[in-house]
Amino acid sequence: MSQSIISVENITKSVISNNNELSILKGISFNINAGESVAIMGTSGAGKSTLMSLLAGLDQPTSGKISILGSTISTMDDEQRAKMRSESIGFVFQNFLLIPSLNALQNVTLPMVLRGNEDESSNNQKAKALLKEVGLAGRETHLPTQLSGGEQQRVALARAFVTKPKILFADEPTGNLDQKTAQHVIELLFAMNKDQGTTLVLVTHDAELAKRCQRTLIISDGQCQESA
């Protein structure tokens, strides 16, 4: 029996813009079960990224409740949410966001360091294995500037999976890549996701990519609809 890993209950999000209150999300509810892959789609400005940042605990809803792994993150403070992220959540971003002053290996071990895993050799071992998995064996000491876009995103994938997160959030992971490279990165993403049994939440414009997920949520006019 699958159990709900993310539960969203009637959340709203509004921001103040030029002294006007602007409602971005208007009462959204859904559940995501462990191991599921879910695509979030919608037009630009519909609120996809806002929703994702709320789910990942990067921001807080104006009202409503979000629970992750049974804990209500919408009432947690900044620090508690950071702890939750370091323990259970991984990210892949559109613009990779690698640390420019760290090499590929160090970028991958970073989440473990943030978690407090002090054993450098075991960290390096895990990171090397993952870099090999994404096809970057032998590139460990390269700095981000010495890697192509596709390679950088593959380092980012390795970084996202190195802590075996329960949930992986991917924000337009192929948005900055050409079609062929994008394809390769997506294959890797889904393969690793399957291997580790991670729950995947993916924000995308790409209908083809969305089709590869088990479910698709469409955000429109502040509301959320499950696609058939």
């Binding site: 990942a56 990067l58 900044d78 620090e79 950071a82 702890k83 939750m84 992220r85 370091s86 323990e87 959540i89 990210f91 971003f93 966001l97 640390i99 420019p100 970073l110 989440p111 943030l114 978690r115």
Partner: peptide, 16 residues
């Protein structure tokens, strides 16, 4: 600031 945001997103605490 982008690096710090990123570290925070990966769960870096203020103390860290």
């Amino acid at each position: 600031s982008e690096t710090v945001s990123m570290l925070k997103s990966m769960g870096a605490s203020r103390a860290w």
